[in-house]
Design a protein around this nucleic acid. Sequence first.
DNA 1: ATGAAAGCGCTAACAG
DNA 2: CTGTTAGCGCTTTCAT
Lengths: 333, 333
Amino acid sequence: MAKSIDEIAKLAGVSVTSVRLVINGQDKKYRISEKTRARIQSIIDEYGYFINQTARSLKLQKTQTLGLVVPRLTNPFFSQLTEALEIRCREAGYQLITVCSRDEAELEKQVVENLIYRSVDGLFVTSSYKERQSDLLANSHGKPVVFLDRDFGTPDIAVVSTNNLDGAKSLGRKMAEQLEGRQLIFMGADEWLPTIKDRLEGLKVGLSEAGYQLPDGNVHFAERISRSHGYQKMSELYQSLGGPPDALVTSALPVLEGCLEYLKTASGEIPGDMVIGSFDDHAMLGFLPNKVFAVRQNAHELALEAYRILEAKMRKEDLEQQQRVIMPELIIY
Amino acid sequence: MAKSIDEIAKLAGVSVTSVRLVINGQDKKYRISEKTRARIQSIIDEYGYFINQTARSLKLQKTQTLGLVVPRLTNPFFSQLTEALEIRCREAGYQLITVCSRDEAELEKQVVENLIYRSVDGLFVTSSYKERQSDLLANSHGKPVVFLDRDFGTPDIAVVSTNNLDGAKSLGRKMAEQLEGRQLIFMGADEWLPTIKDRLEGLKVGLSEAGYQLPDGNVHFAERISRSHGYQKMSELYQSLGGPPDALVTSALPVLEGCLEYLKTASGEIPGDMVIGSFDDHAMLGFLPNKVFAVRQNAHELALEAYRILEAKMRKEDLEQQQRVIMPELIIY
DNA sequence: ATGAAAGCGCTAACAG
DNA sequence: CTGTTAGCGCTTTCAT
C-alpha cells in the first residue's frame, strides 16, 4: 500500500527531487509550483508514503538509534532508568535499543557487539567489569559511549553514577542513632563493583561519625546479587549468631529479600525490631513492621544527564566535564 | 579500523564474491583455492571485518529486528516478560526493540508507527484498547503481529494471554475460606481491560462457589492503575467503612501499594488481620504480616509462546491455533 | 575457481 | 522551478 519516493514520483510524473521536497515540507513556494505540489500531495494522500529508515540510514551513515546495556530489567532501579532514558531518546528522535547483560562478562561483550553491528549512533553501558569497559572503549569503532551507574575509575571516559559514598554515609549516621549498643551486620554481594565498595565504605564512615565502629567480622558477602544467595548467606549468619541480627544493611534489594525470606522461615516471622537499611528503595519496604532506611537513587536525573552527555559527544562538542555524580535520597519508613 | 567487503577485496586483489565466500565459510574447497582463501583471511585478520547490518537489511528487506510494546517496564510482570522475550529473540538471531506505551492510546500509536518505520520484521504488542488493536492490524503493512496479555476478543488474531478467569476463580475459592462471614472488597482499575474484567468475574465465581456472594457495593474502581489512585480510592473507602476492610483484593500491584500506604497512614500500621488477595505477585508480599494470596502470571511461558507464534507467522506457516492462554499459579504466603 | 554488475530506497550534489 | 545521477555496503545472478 504505502509507496516509496521513486514510485510516488513515477505516479505523479515528476522527479524524485520534487517529491522529496514536498515530503520534507521544503516546498518553499519559490521552488515547487503549486500545481506539482498539489499533484504530488494527492498521490501521497491516496497511496500513502512511508520512509524506509534502513535506506536512509545506509545513505547517511546514521541510524538514529542508541543502544542501552543494563544488567537486568527486573531490577527496579534499572527498569526506571530504562523507562526514563527511552522517553528522553524518543523525544530527541532516537530509538533506544535495550539489552540485558545479566552482569555476565561474556554476554555483555556479545550484546555490545550486536549493538555496534546494528550501527547504533551511540551507547549507554552499565559495565560489569573494569576490563570490559576498557575493552569496549578500544572496540567502539569510534562510537560515543556513556557508562552508567558504575565508575571503575578509568580516566577520561564519560560516566554518570550515583554518589553512593555520601548516600551510604547519611544512611550510616541515621542507623547508628537506632543502635544503642546493638550490633549491625552488612550483607553485600558482587564486591568487585565500585558501587558496592562505596556503599560499604560510606556506611562505615557514617556509622563511625555517629560513634559506632563496624567490626570487620560484621561484614559479609553473598556470592552474587540474588535472592537465593542472600537466603543462603543469612542462614549461615543466623546459625553463627544464634538468631537474627539486631540491625541489617544490604547492598541490594534481592539480597535483602533473600535474607528476609530466611528469617521468616527460621523465626516464623520477620523480627520486627530488626532495624533495616537498604540500598535501592522499593514501595513495599514501607509496609514492613520494621524501622527501615532506604537509599533511593535518582534514576530520572541519571537518565537525563547520561543523555545530555551522549548527545554532546555525538555532535562532537568538547566536554569540559564528562563525569557526573548524582545524589541519592535517604528515605525513612 | 574494520573494513567493508569491498575494501577487503581491493586489499586482497580479489573480487567481492571471493571475499564473501570465505567470510560466510562457504569456501568449500572446490570453489576457492587455498591460496586466495589464505590471502583473504590474512587481510581480514589484520584489518578486521564487520558486517554492515544496515546495508544487508536494505538488500534483503529484512532487518532481523522485532518490536515489543509494553505499557511500562517498571511493572514487574512486564519487565520479566521483556527479559524473557529478549533472551529468546537473541537466541534466534533477532534483536528486540522494546518501547513503552504507558497505556496511552496516542503514545501507543506513535511507538508502533516508529517500529514499523524501522522495518522490524514482526511485532509483539500489549495493546491498551480494542480499537488500537484493529487499527494496528489495518496499518501493519503486512508485518506479523502477536498481541500480548490482553485479549479483547477480536477474531482471527494472534494473542497470548494469561487465564485470568481461572486464576481468579481459585483465588476466590481460597479467600472465601478465610472470610468466616466477614466482608471482602475488590479494588480494581482500568476496568475496560479484559484482564481486569476477567479477574473480577473469576473472583466472583470462585467466591460464590465457596459460598460467598460478592455484593456489587463491595466492588470499587480507582481511576487508573497507579499507586496514587489506589491511595485515593482507599481513603474514600476507609471513610465510608469507618475502618479498613476485612479482606481486600486488588487487580494490580500498584493499586495494592496505594491502598496499603493509606492504611498505614490512617491506622499507623497495616492491619495485620486483613486478608489480602493480589493479582501480580511480588517477592515482598511474603513479608507482610498478613495472610496473602497472590496470582502469579507465568511471564516466561508467555514469552516463549508469543515468540513461537510470531516466528511461525514470519515464515508464513499456517497456524491452526494462534491463540494461547497460559495458566497462572496461586501463591499463598 | 573467480569476477562483474544490478539493485535495495534514500540523499545530495549538480545540471539544466 | 525541476530532473538526473552517483553511491551508501550488501546479496545474488549470471559470466567467464
